[in-house]
Amino acid sequence: MTDSFDPPYPNYDILRKWDSPSYNQITRDVLTERLTAVPQRQFLDEQEWRLLQAICDQLVPQPERTDPVPITPFIDAALTENRTNGTRFAGIPAMREAWRKGLAAIRAEAMAQHDTDFVSLDAHRQEALLHRINDGDAEPAHWDGMPAQRFFRSVLLKEVLAIYYAHPAAQSEIGFGGPAAPRGYVRMGADRMDPWEAPADRRNR
């Protein structure tokens, strides 16, 4: 994936509000931890980790960033702690097993289609392969009874997006107001913003 993302709020950074009343103490604590203590690999093995990283690069490509938002480490951390999300859809095993199985299946898909590891595929092929799964065209044989599309959308993609868009860099890029306690907002109408929000969308100016 080479075409890149053109940010509508290029100079906006919600972290600049750090010392303002938009951030309360617990928000600072939570974000400090997220930004400074990126977890180390514990649960996944090295191969799985690299595979997951390659997948994440396709799900949320960040070619323009020198310091991309880390995603894999937080998935690994959640698996280490055996976190669950409250729903286990039929056919999908418990979280840890589901991820292992899903990664193995994607590796198998790559092997079957291209005779090589997913990680070594070029970006275009990687993306196409993931699209097939997303569109429901995975090869059931590789998935050992696990519904591939459901795993892809409801487990994998959801978790990746939850991690990415919880990151200040991702929130800045879409012009989200970001943390807002105790200070919230005053100006509620269309095209009206408070001075502590992102300035108007570049495309609208």
């Binding site: 890149s4 993302f5 053109d6 509508p8 949320v60 879409i174 012009g175 989200f176």
Partner: peptide, 13 residues
């Protein structure tokens, strides 16, 4: 997903 999703998300506001 991918860049397309990031682009669509850029319309969040």
């Amino acid at each position: 997903f991918g860049t397309e999703l990031r682009r669509r998300m850029a319309d969040y506001n």
